[in-house]
Design a protein around this nucleic acid. Structure first.
Lengths: 349, 349
DNA sequence: CTGTTAGCGCGTTCAG
DNA sequence: CTGAACGCGCTAACAG
């Protein structure tokens, strides 16, 4: 009796019971209203209940519902990454955005977590994630990845692996990736047509399967093109711009100028290019440059880098759709989904 | 080859009871082990219980625990943003990373959600977020922001507002921001010392409080510096690179060349610079350029843009710390926290 | 259409 | 140090 619209001081949580009492119906009816089971509720009672819900500012207690129905309506997005700022990579950022947006249309929530490979197995946080399924981007050498994969599978929850070149190990796991190897081949074709003889590839030392695939595709492409191309690979210590620059400088100081530099992604390509420009080496006349991804940052550097376009946002969306149909229908629609990539000519080749 | 049907029966969840039975102790003892209440458990029983936990692959049922203790150990990070790819902005990405990393050390989880201002109030997803508190980055004009703020406050949960210039409206709300106005003043001082007479400011039309503050600080700074400076502001339709370019082109086609262009952030500064370079206008000799934020992308463009450095990652960390002490001690340590910014000289002034 | 009963898995309380 | 009872808020399955 105490509270009209003025007195809003519910120090105790408003439950379905409170609403039921206020609307003079049973808790079950309130539950039916809340869950949109309108077949079970008459129009007038529904209105009355809805009014009380609004008046009391009732919100469902998610944990109680989850406990009852064994569904969290939530997925965990995990990045195994050595960098604390794991979301600063545009690929990751796009994936999260796409995943998030798809899932939220189905009233699902996304919990993100970046974690270093070495900490993965000690981490209680992942084991105790309150989610219905996972979407994971792995990094590191194959054996480390496979150890982590085992822990993940052990969680016994639906799992989408992003950018993993392996086959999905079981029914509960599904792969969503893009054709990185194909992208590498596209670049090789393009460079081969420009009669490139020596190529420097710049990659991070942290082992990203997608980047490995790009390099593998590049080799394949050059092989198929016939010509006798020499490929050198240098690794940058970290993923950072300056790290890539250092790696390229180190190489250039000890080797003759290559005909082309291929970055594992656009950042690496642009870092390499910045060195060449510092040294007054003409791009693309003297050295050609290609990147990978084609996100917005590419526009900042000039000349515009020739690249292969990734649909990272769409990868995130697809992963979300996969998980949703897995939740609703009990199985993934397919064990593997591969998105195409697109060659994008710039001014550096 | 059927991994298809093999042993995978409905497989009931392993509960604390199962572990108790297996270890031949009471469920309560298992609970004490799980929660590290070692004072209540003898060494040998603990070992035994831990062995059974590992053997049965037991994981705590988060929703049952939450229901019991009224704690989710989770915070919601919300971006009110018109762009679907809300995480692609490095500021946002850094904030999430910082928040996430701090919270995960305390075994808390972060749920992210981007949402358009217009959809905010219809959105059931925010109302039903299963979290203990929120961290929010608002955008839009002041009245729209304040409507959203009201809904947020109505959720009756601890709330950290990032980059809001307003005072914290109540005990449950706390502001974490950086000194954007101060940053604007730094830039004004710098440009004033270079005897700039006309300035073009380029901002997105989507209203970000932080950018408003930067522009306000800039005006203040020029005022304080005395000189008679003319400031024109153009708005880009969206936050994208090309949108900023279009806005600048539109301006330049109708006005004489300004002495300086100030971007609301580095992206806008670099977009403006790209136009000048296209048109063969010398930077910084003919037109000076400044940005804001100083994230890695700034390195891609040359000449290197003079900017003000944001500690976005640290803002995220601080927000996380705020929330943690709010959870643990029942109140925020302070109602407002303002981080300093730093002037960073580049080659464009 | 509406109400009743009976837990979901866990942690607090209080007794051994 | 360990165990038994109880209930957190919600909803499936049934009754009326």
């Amino acid at each position: 009796m105490s509270d009209h619209d003025s007195g809003r001081a519910p120090q105790k949580r408003v439950t379905i019971k409170d609403v039921a009492k206020a609307a003079d119906v049973s808790p079950m009816t309130v539950s039916n209203v809340v869950n949109g089971k309108h077949q079970f509720v008459s129009e007038p009672t529904r209105k009355a209940v809805e009014r009380e819900i609004a008046r009391l500012n009732y919100r469902v207690q998610h944990s109680a519902r989850s406990l009852r129905v064994s569904r969290r309506r939530s997925v965990g997005m995990i990045f195994v990454d050595e960098s604390p700022s794991f979301l600063v990579d545009h690929f990751n950022a796009h994936v999260v955005a796409g995943l998030c947006n798809v899932l939220s249309t189905a009233d699902h929530t996304v919990t993100v977590q970046g974690i270093r490979a070495g900490q993965f197995n000690q981490s209680s946080i992942i084991r105790n994630f309150a989610v219905d399924g996972f979407c994971v981007v792995l990094s590191g050498p194959p054996d480390a990845r496979s150890t982590i994969l085992d822990s993940l599978i052990n969680l016994d929850q639906p799992l989408v692996l992003m950018q993993e070149p392996i086959a999905s190990p079981n029914q509960e796991t599904c792969i969503v990736r893009q054709d990185d190897a194909g992208g590498g081949r596209l670049l090789a074709d393009h460079l081969a047509a420009r009669r490139v003889g020596t190529v420097l590839v710049v990659v991070p030392s942290q082992n990203w399967p997608a980047i490995d695939q790009r390099v593998a595709g590049l080799r394949e492409g050059f092989q198929a093109a016939g010509g006798d191309v020499r490929i050198d690979v240098v690794q940058a210590e970290t993923e950072e711009f300056d790290s890539a620059r250092a790696a390229v400088m180190g190489y250039l100081d000890r080797h003759p100028l290559p005909d082309a530099i291929v970055g594992g992604n656009d950042r690496f390509a642009i870092a390499a290019m910045s060195i060449l420009l510092d040294r007054g080496i003409a791009v693309p006349e003297r050295v050609k440059i290609t990147g990978f991804n084609g996100f917005e940052q590419r526009r900042y550097a000039r000349p515009l880098v020739t690249t292969v376009i990734s649909s990272a946002y769409e990868l995130g969306e697809r992963a979300g759709q996969m998980l949703l149909t897995r939740f609703e229908e009990g199985r993934f629609p397919t064990r593997e989904l591969v998105l195409p990539v697109h060659f994008e000519l710039g001014e550096t080749t």
